[in-house]
Design a protein around this nucleic acid. Sequence first.
DNA 1: GATGAATGAGGCTTCATTCAT
DNA 2: AATGAATGAAGCCTCATTCAT
Lengths: 188, 188, 188, 188
Amino acid sequence: MARPRSEEKRDAILTAAMELIAEHGLGAATAEIAKVAQVPHGSVFTYFGTKSALLNELYVELKTELSESILEAMPGDGDVREQLHHLWGRWTDWGVSNPPKRRALAQLGVSDQITETSRKAAAVVAGPAVEIVDRARSSGALRDAPLAYVGALVEAMAGTTIDFIIQDPGNAERVRDAGFEALWQAIS
Amino acid sequence: MARPRSEEKRDAILTAAMELIAEHGLGAATAEIAKVAQVPHGSVFTYFGTKSALLNELYVELKTELSESILEAMPGDGDVREQLHHLWGRWTDWGVSNPPKRRALAQLGVSDQITETSRKAAAVVAGPAVEIVDRARSSGALRDAPLAYVGALVEAMAGTTIDFIIQDPGNAERVRDAGFEALWQAIS
Amino acid sequence: MARPRSEEKRDAILTAAMELIAEHGLGAATAEIAKVAQVPHGSVFTYFGTKSALLNELYVELKTELSESILEAMPGDGDVREQLHHLWGRWTDWGVSNPPKRRALAQLGVSDQITETSRKAAAVVAGPAVEIVDRARSSGALRDAPLAYVGALVEAMAGTTIDFIIQDPGNAERVRDAGFEALWQAIS
Amino acid sequence: MARPRSEEKRDAILTAAMELIAEHGLGAATAEIAKVAQVPHGSVFTYFGTKSALLNELYVELKTELSESILEAMPGDGDVREQLHHLWGRWTDWGVSNPPKRRALAQLGVSDQITETSRKAAAVVAGPAVEIVDRARSSGALRDAPLAYVGALVEAMAGTTIDFIIQDPGNAERVRDAGFEALWQAIS
DNA sequence: GATGAATGAGGCTTCATTCAT
DNA sequence: AATGAATGAAGCCTCATTCAT
């Protein structure tokens, strides 16, 4: 009779992978990940099959966590600016308070190891957030641009803002607010 | 006098590295780079010392080429919008017509192998372009934000735009123009 | 018309090799030797042909220098104890005042790169010193042992003494004198 | 439970290393060591981590084996001369019957790859043998010399004697006995 | 399922020697 | 002779994955 897999181990591996990727890039060794997660090396493969699969699951996990964080406490009937402001604040806060997650996600995002399937899965969970962006841009310069493009722009601006605040935390609030104004001008 | 180093070999190695990094990421093997460049493996180290040094030189080279391309034929006394428009057009054109260069640069940019020294060297050659951005934002939402942040935002938007056009070339012109409008609204 | 070889360069290479071997063992790279000697890498091979030849010449050179140092000012008609005492003092002084030379010689001595020819050449220059040892042992425990063995014993004791003094210079004189007494007891 | 490490493999690697170092010096390639030991190349690193660690373990192993061999059947209450004679006989016998071990140990002993930690570990196991030397020298010329120096002298004399006998086995017994007399005179 | 040893291809770098200039 | 770039074999070590226990 097979023992059931442990959710804790799975999470420990994902967390360790996230930290090591943030620090050492995608070259982080599975053996090292196992050590940090305090699980046997073999378990990485019991739980994820291949390193590539692990990276993909981590990518989706981080994207999901980010999306959920963005949507949490989203004002439901507020006007669009208010909603976009909420989105922006949550997004940048998530990254600023989790530098390793932000860095890991940045590495994963540009990697060719992440499959189209994973990217689509991430897009699905990001759907509600994208809808807000869609409404916000409905009468602006980007009103006729592909929605995927507009979403990517927002993501790029948020990522840049997070990185800048991490590196220079002194002006956090000012940068975040100025960034939002720029975003609002850009798309509304 | 001994044989002088060959500029051609150096360039061949850099070009091969660029292509392979675009295709396989920073894990591209030095032996493979040498093969594509049609030089012996050892020559990679004669010319660059270490793989890391090669990556750094490639990074600076690409950034320099991009900066020069942006500034070429820049209208000198035109108004700021016109200058920013030139910058945007040149930038996105460079990326769209050189997907491997854009992809390699994107990989290198997020790598922790690129030293602060290289990043500073790149910042220096990008100086004149940044000045234009500085003038353009002088009365907009980002007027009081750190210039480095604004520059990073422009870079992020340009990169996103290039990637989108490469992936969906049909709407190239429309996306590029919409992108510019968004940029102009964001910073002016 | 060929330029004559420069004695200075030759010596610079030998000196650099000696220093680097003392520090890094026989694996010292010829390129590094050339750099320390401030000569072009190719000159190492112009002057010595192969690395192995360089090592052999260095070995003979050091052995010769040591032998000459031992014999210098040797009391000609003194009794044997006095001569052996002179030999011992000179020998240990040479090593103690030239740690790199001692260390290089120790490395070279155990190397299988040193040919029989070189060892014989070194034995020839050491001849007069060996004669003194021969006379000293003529009525002792080693009177019937092969002379080469007795010579090797003296060399081993001198080397050990030098190493010990280098490592613990505080007791230099006491150790050197005790060493001599031990030697004298051993062979006389 | 996973497969336990195999003592046999470990020993095979150490033995192969010892043989190849005796023959080719410390430059012996890890791949060659693996081949001779009939294990995959990677196993060398599974068992020893680095080549340097392998050399250090081999050094301690050989020193330990030698020390144990010296002390085996040591007459407990015999007088000191008898004990020293036993030590000398065992020591030289060990070397003469194991030329590769003696040669490997000689190479390792002068290498700067051997750490102070390893040298100290070797000194510990050699402790009882050193005590005998200490007692033997208590009223001789070296009575006030540092014990470490006296021990090193004995080691040097034993090594020299072994090498000489290996190279000229005809006079084995005579040389060994003469060597002992010399040693006894030197220190007692 | 749990564990960590086993595996060998592949990666980066070094190096003695040669040779174009 | 002088110079240092050219060369590619060889060296040490890493690593994802498998599998014996």
